[in-house]
Design a protein around this nucleic acid. Sequence first.
DNA 1: AACACGGGGAT
DNA 2: ATCCCAGTGTT
Length: 355
Amino acid sequence: MSRILQNFDNRNFRNTLIDWYQANKRDLPWRQDQNPYRIWVSEIMLQQTQVDTVIPYFQQFMFKYPTLRDLAYADEQDVLKTWEGLGYYSRVRNLQNAVREVEASYGGEVPDDPKQLEKLKGIGPYTKGAILSIAFDQPEPAVDGNVMRVLSRVLKIEDDITQPRVKKQFEQYARELMSYDDPSSFNQGIMELGALICTPKEPMCMFCPVQEHCRAFQEGVEQELPVKSKAKKQKKIPYTVLLIRNERDEYLIEKRPEEGLLANLWQFPMVPVAEIGQDHIVTWFEMEYGIKIELSSKQGDLKHVFSHIIWQMEIVAATTSNKAVEDERLRFVSLQELETYPFPVSHQKMMPYIY
DNA sequence: AACACGGGGAT
DNA sequence: ATCCCAGTGTT
């Protein structure tokens, strides 16, 4: 047993937590049953994303792709359209890759074996534990940010939780604390506690079922935990976004590369002005895309913040006499057709500037 | 171990 | 406007 868990009333903590969870758990769409596919989809959506954001996406996704097989045979662009606005789009591309693998190698049944599960794209240590415990009642830890926050306070652990080795430590503690009677309620209970009571700021310790077990509360330092090093700040990148209209009132859109940021989503063409220079936009555009354009007027400025960069976008209206395009990446589309393509939120913000 | 990869919410 | 939230893949 870890030194840190000596003198810790593990059994009482675990039972109290599970009882609290049974009595207070939220009625969420993915808690209706133990269908492994539904649990899996919900856990992918919940990565880096809050419950309230996920709920409508989950409903829509299940409506369109009710079974693993439906998702396996779906068109990737349609799947991306369903994910549009949820962010971290590689999550859903990996998910579709993984369900196709399950279809091909496991007869369409989600494997209940840790080794097979973790080989699937998009399933890391957390999601593996979540699926195994929630869908299959297996005693595997599922350590997410909630769990690290709760345990850092309960056990008063002052290590920097952004460090990979510290996360491994938390997985070890979670494994030692684990309930073998009800792993699902144990894992979901810690996460639920982190979401509802043991919140990042102003935790509601007065309502906490495991208050008497919490070393941070006893010492009044719950607000100081967990310890996290600060993220470095984002680099700003200036772009000129071109809203290019032809004589048929169609707009030029471009498919982003199949790897990297916002992969395979569509956008209005963007010129990296820092590299190209304000005065060379038109010539650069013709060289890059083979289309002659004429700039008409500046429509406004928009900022879009990602976790690692900031796009500073100047919106410029332009016209062209082209009606067709050679370039595979490009398409002229009507306002109506525009709505059927998956766009990142950064470019959904352009819609009001379309005239 | 460090970095890429979205978007939403609170203050 | 600024800070907080936080899993997986790649290198």
